[in-house]
């Protein structure tokens, strides 16, 4: 009798936790996407919570300090680590992506202070949603500066 009660109680907790996890996952999942993937999905991507990554194109950065509105474009960068390694590391890939005008790009709008790390060839990881007009409305903007990925080996020029 007691044993059944304990087992029932345990099952109840299990069910509650499973429900919490499943419903919270559904409510807050974000899709990782590259620029190409977003373009390929087209209208299907509109309204989904996305985490978009790409290389910042320096010339496209505009900032209106009075409204704190920041716009810029990101160019496609592959999400595959092996491919990045094959192409000479992330810094090289980002550099290439920002310079290559034939690549797919997505325009990004973000309202807020302009981050210091926002510059040409930075890697941007943005969470937000893409509008029907193809413009990505970013709620959150994370930037990684290419210098962080430099080989941990000093430049020859630094030698005496």
């Amino acid at each position: 009798m007691q044993k059944t009660k304990f087992i029932l109680g345990g099952l109840l907790i299990l069910a509650a936790v499973a429900y919490l996890i499943v419903s919270s996952t559904q409510a807050s999942k974000e899709y990782f996407m590259t620029v190409n993937e977003v373009k390929a999905e087209g209208a299907a991507a509109v309204g989904k919570s996305l985490r978009l990554s790409g290389a910042v194109v320096g010339d496209t950065i505009e900032y209106d300090a009075s409204t704190l509105t920041l716009t810029f474009e990101v160019a496609h960068v592959t999400g595959d680590n092996d491919e990045i390694a094959a192409q000479g590391g992330l810094a090289a890939v980002l550099k290439q992506a920002a310079a290559d005008t034939t690549r797919e790009r997505v325009k990004v709008v973000y309202v807020g202070p302009k981050p210091d790390l926002l510059r040409n060839e930075a890697q941007a990881i943005m969470t937000g949603k893409i509008g029907a007009d193809g413009v990505f409305q970013a709620d959150e903007l994370l930037l990684k500066c290419p210098t962080k990925y430099e080989q941990a080996v000093p430049e020859q020029a630094a030698a005496q």
């Binding site: 919270s24 409510a27 807050s28 974000e30 990782f32 985490r51 969470t127």
Partner: peptide, 9 residues
């Protein structure tokens, strides 16, 4: 598909 969950989860 790469999907992630953030702080709200």
């Amino acid at each position: 598909q790469k999907v992630t969950v953030g702080p709200p989860f």
